[in-house]
Design a protein around this nucleic acid. Structure first.
Lengths: 339, 339
DNA sequence: GTGAAAGCGCTAACAT
DNA sequence: ATGTTAGCGCTTTCAC
C-alpha cells in the first residue's frame, strides 16, 4: 500500500506531475517517458489512491443506494439495474439497507454525506403521508442530485422514477373484463402506501371505463402480507354473491390467495380467475401459469441510475424530471373466464 | 459542501486541532470550548469529510462485497447479513456485482483496491477447478483481509465461511431413508462446482451409512437450471425401476421437478417423495409443503462479516480460519413414504 | 487545555 | 514536454 505517486516519480526519474499526467491521460507526455512510467508502475505494483484523488478533485465517483430491504428480490433486481449502469459509467455504489427503519435511513444519509457521494438513489421508508421534516432536511442538505425510486416524499420535489401503478392496475382489471368477468374483487395493499392507493384507483378506473359500478363489497383491504391475503381469500370464497375473478394487487399477497385456493380445491381459472401485480418468478417456473401486470423492475434500477448520471452531468439543468415506467401485462391463462 | 474544519475553527475562535479533538472525542477539551465548537458545527451545518479523514488516517472503514448476482435472492439474503453486521460496526459497503464474469470481477478488485477498502468478502466466480493466476494474484495483491463466501479458490488459503454441503445432503438423504425409501434418486448441480460435488458425496455417504449400494442409474446430472431438472424428472418418471424419492440438490432445480410432476399429475409425496437443498420461500407460502435442507443464508453473510471484522482487528493473527455452517433440515411432509 | 505545523497521496494551475 | 508549488480537509505529534 505504501507505494505512492512519489515513489513512481523518483524511480522513473520524473516529477509527480508527469506521473499524474500519464495516470489521467491528460496533457502531453513524451511517448518514451510514458512507457517508462508505466513500466515502473507495473514493477512497483502501483495502484493509485482514489481517496487522495477524491480529496484533490472533489469528486468521488461514488453514489449511494438507499433501499429498505436488499433481501427482497424486488430490490435485488433494482440494485442489479443500478449496478449495471453504474459499472458502465465507472461509478461505485455504497449500499445502505435501511431495514425499513427511519433512524437507519437518517444514519445512512449522514454517512453517505460524510463519504462525499455525488448522488443518491433512494426508496424512502418514511411513509408518504406523514411528513418528517428532519428527514426532508437531511435529504435536501445533501446538496447532491437525488433520484427517488418508486417512492414519494411529502412536500418535496425530487427527481424520480416511478411505476405507473394506475395504468398497471387498470390494464389488469381490463384483462379480466375482456374475459367477460363482471364481478371482480380486488385485494389492496396497505392503503397508506401510494402504490396501494394508485392500484385501487386503476381498478376503479377500469370499471368506470366499462360502465360497471364499483361495488364496495368486492373491495378487500389487505396489508401486503400473504397471511392477510389468505384470510381475505377464504372470506371471498364464502361470499354469497361471490366474484368470479380477483385482482390481487401485490406479488406477495397472491401467494396467500393461492394457498387458500389450494386448501379449498379451487381451480384457477375454472373456479376463480386471478391476476396479480408484479410477477412471482417461481410460480411461472413451476407451471402455475398465473397472469400478472409487472413493473419493469430491473429497468427501474437502470433508469434511475441513468437519470442520476444525467443530473450529475448538467448540474444547472434544474428542471424536475419524473419518469413513469409502464408495467407490462403478461397473460398466462389465469385470467380466463370459463363457465 | 464548502464548510471545513477550518471554517469551524475560525468561527469558534480556536485552532483546527481543537475542532478535530471534539470531532474524535480525543484528548482534552474544556467543556465550554467543546460546546461552543459543537454549536458552531450545527450552525454551519458541518459534515466532516470521510475522504480527508481516510487520507490522513489511512483507514476508510469501508469493505468490498463482491458477488456474482445481487438479483438472486440467495445473494440478497447474504448481503443483508453482511449489511447488518457492517452497519453495527460502522463499516460501509461498496457493492460489486460481477454478473458471473471474471473480467468484471477483476475490474471490481482493481476498483476496490483504488478505493482503499480495508477488507473484502467475495464469492468468486472463477470456477474452482480452473486455476487463474491473474485472478489469484489480484486477490493476494490487495494486501487486505479476505473472506471467502461459500466458494474456494484453487491453490489459495484464504479465510472463509462455508456451508457444509456434505452434511446437508447427507441429512436430506437420511430423512428419506428414515421414511423407508430405498430407491432414491439424486439430481445434481453442475459437477464442476464444489457444492454439487459435495452434495453428491453427502448423498452417497448417507446410502453408505445405511448399507445401501449406490445405484448409478439413480444419479442424474443436472446443471442447476430448472429446465434441465424438468427434463430429468420427466425421464425419471418414465423409468422402469422408478425411484420412490428424489433428492434435488438445488432450490432452482426443484421448481423444474415440481413442474414436471404437475404436468404428469404426480402427487407429492403419494406418488413421489421429494426433498430439496435450500429453501424456496414461495413454495412454502403457497402451501406446497416441500421439505428442504437449507443453508443458513443470512447467517452466512453475518458470519462472514464478523470474521472479516476479527481479521481487521488483529492483523497479526495469521491463522487461517474457516467456518462450516450446518444446514438445517426442515421437514414438511414431502419426504414421506406412502404405499 | 490548546495551538502550530507537518503530512496523508494526489491534482492542477503556473512556470519553464 | 516536464517540473514547481500550492492546495484538497483532516489527523497527529510536539510544543507551550
Amino acid at each position: 500500500m505504501a507505494v505512492t505517486i512519489y515513489d513512481i516519480a523518483k524511480k522513473a526519474d520524473v516529477s509527480r506531475s508527469t506521473v499524474s499526467r500519464v495516470l489521467n491521460d491528460s496533457g502531453y507526455v513524451k511517448e518514451e517517458t510514458r512507457e517508462k512510467i508505466i513500466k515502473v508502475m507495473k514493477e512497483l505494483n502501483y495502484t493509485p489512491s482514489a481517496i487522495a484523488r477524491s480529496l484533490s478533485t472533489n469528486k468521488t465517483n461514488t453514489i449511494g443506494v438507499v433501499i429498505p430491504e436488499i433481501s427482497n428480490p424486488f430490490f435485488g433486481k433494482i440494485t442489479k439495474g443500478i449496478s449495471e449502469v453504474a459499472d458502465k459509467n465507472n461509478y461505485n455504489i455504497i449500499l445502505c439497507d435501511t431495514n425499513e427503519s427511519v433512524e437507519k435511513e437518517l444514519k445512512a444519509l449522514k454517512v453517505l454525506k460524510e463519504q462525499r457521494i455525488q448522488g443518491i438513489i433512494i426508496t424512502p421508508t418514511v411513509a408518504e403521508n406523514e411528513f418528517n421534516s428532519e428527514y426532508l432536511n437531511a435529504l435536501e442538505n445533501l446538496g447532491i442530485p437525488i433520484v427517488l425510486l418508486d417512492g414519494h416524499i411529502k412536500y418535496s420535489d425530487f427527481n424520480g422514477v416511478f411505476v405507473d401503478h394506475i395504468k398497471g392496475a387498470c390494464d389488469a382489471t381490463q384483462a379480466l373484463l375482456d374475459e367477460g368477468h363482471r364481478k371482480i374483487a380486488i385485494i389492496t395493499g396497505r392503503m397508506e402506501s401510494r402504490p396501494a392507493k394508485e392500484r385501487l384507483n386503476g381498478y376503479k378506473k377500469a370499471l368506470a371505463i366499462n360502465n360497471i359500478p364499483v361495488d364496495e363489497k368486492y373491495i378487500f383491504y389487505g396489508d401486503y402480507t400473504h397471511e392477510k391475503a389468505y384470510e381475505i381469500t377464504k372470506q371471498i370464497m364464502s361470499m354469497e354473491d361471490r366474484p368470479t375473478a380477483i385482482f390481487v394487487s401485490s406479488n406477495i399477497m397472491i401467494l396467500g390467495c393461492i394457498r387458500a385456493f389450494y386448501e379449498e380445491n379451487i381451480r384457477i381459472p375454472e373456479d376463480m380467475a386471478i391476476i396479480g401485480f408484479d410477477e412471482v418468478d417461481t410460480l411461472n417456473i413451476i407451471g402455475m401459469n398465473i397472469s400478472f401486470v409487472s413493473g419493469p423492475t430491473t429497468e427501474l434500477g437502470r433508469t434511475s441510475m441513468k437519470m442520476l448520471i444525467q443530473n450529475l452531468k448538467d448540474k444547472d439543468h434544474k428542471d424536475i424530471r419524473r419518469i413513469n415506467l409502464l408495467p407490462k401485462l403478461v397473460l398466462r391463462g389465469s385470467e380466463k373466464r370459463i363457465d
